[in-house]
């Protein structure tokens, strides 16, 4: 039983990180139908920003909790700026072009950012300090560590916040309208450019939070971490139904648990096999993903 719970919480932690990244994929896809392959790199840049801020503040003697919060805030701001800029440079000029063009542009951006960080920082792995405060979790301390608990709690809070934001704010409403029909949204006076920029900013911020949390949890980063995390999160988004926000959360959770249980009860050799076999299965029966809408034929 204890082993089962340990695996469950491990899967929850993993799923949380996937969720934070997958939300960015799914939001951007929902608005402009673009798979933003540079999104994993935003996650990586967030982690690097967190490392730099933690290094500076740590040397200045700030308390650990303050460093943790400031590192996340700094990473969010910096990554949001990157997300905003990437959209302006790589996607906006191609908005009228055929669908493949921005996709290629996104892949190019991803490769560029990876290599940029490799050259500007280092190609080596770097140690990442344990920013998440260490404490003994009451009752279930023997099965879940403080960092895992905080990752899960932060992710839940972020998901709730995002849902409220989309449901109840003006901007959130504008986002939903743009996602439904961009031309119609323009006609009723929504500034579509602002909405798209806001989507990139929000998505990038979430990825940055994930980047700092997971880097702090596993204790190391390099310029390449965004690639695999990005692929997995993208899988989660597709699994849940790309374009759907609750779908991305659900997809990430399922993917995280599948991987954790495949490792825990079968073998970690087959971790990816199970994850992708599940993806194939779900797409066979629900081609648009678990919560995705079936595409309406526009005549």
């Amino acid at each position: 039983m204890e082993y089962f719970l340990e695996i469950l919480f491990g899967g929850l932690t993993r799923g949380s990180i996937y969720a934070l990244i997958a939300l960015g994929y799914t939001m951007v896809y929902g608005i402009i139908e673009l798979i933003n392959f540079a999104h994993g790199e935003i996650y990586m840049i967030g982690a690097f920003t967190g490392l730099i801020i933690a290094g500076v503040l740590g040397a200045a003697g700030f308390p650990a909790a303050a460093i943790f919060v400031l590192a996340i805030l700094g990473a969010v701001l910096y990554s949001a700026a990157y997300g905003y800029t990437i959209e302006k440079i790589a996607y906006k000029p191609l908005r009228g072009a055929q669908r493949l063009s921005p996709l290629i542009s996104a892949i190019g951006m991803s490769i560029f950012l990876q290599n940029y960080v490799m050259l500007a920082q280092t190609s080596d792995f770097l140690p990442f300090p344990s920013l998440i405060p260490e404490f003994k979790v009451p009752w279930i301390g023997h099965i879940i560590s403080s960092s895992e608990l905080i990752i899960v709690v932060v992710t839940i809070l972020v998901c709730i916040g995002l849902t409220l934001f989309i449901k109840f704010t003006r901007l959130g409403k504008a986002m939903r309208a743009t996602a439904q029909n961009r031309k119609m949204a323009m006609l009723v006076g929504i500034n579509v450019n602002t909405v798209i920029s806001a989507t990139f900013v929000v998505g990038s911020s979430l990825a940055a939070v994930g980047g700092v949390l997971i880097a702090s949890h596993i204790g190391q980063i390099n310029y390449y971490i965004g690639f695999i995390a990005g692929i997995k999160a993208f899988t989660a988004a597709v699994l849940g139904g790309i374009g759907s926000v609750p779908g991305a959360m659900l997809g990430a959770l399922i993917l995280g648990q599948t991987e954790a249980f495949a490792t825990g009860y079968v073998s970690s050799d087959y971790e990816d096999v199970f994850a992708f076999a599940l993806l194939v299965l779900i797409l066979i029966f629900r081609p648009a993903g678990i919560m995705g809408k079936e595409p309406v034929q526009k005549v």
Binding site: R14, I214, F227, I228, G264, S267, S268, D269, D272
Partner: peptide, 13 residues
């Protein structure tokens, strides 16, 4: 067991 290089975390293994 084999682990996947670059995976997000290894807590399960």
């Amino acid at each position: 067991e084999g682990v996947t290089p670059g995976a997000v975390d290894y807590s399960a293994v």
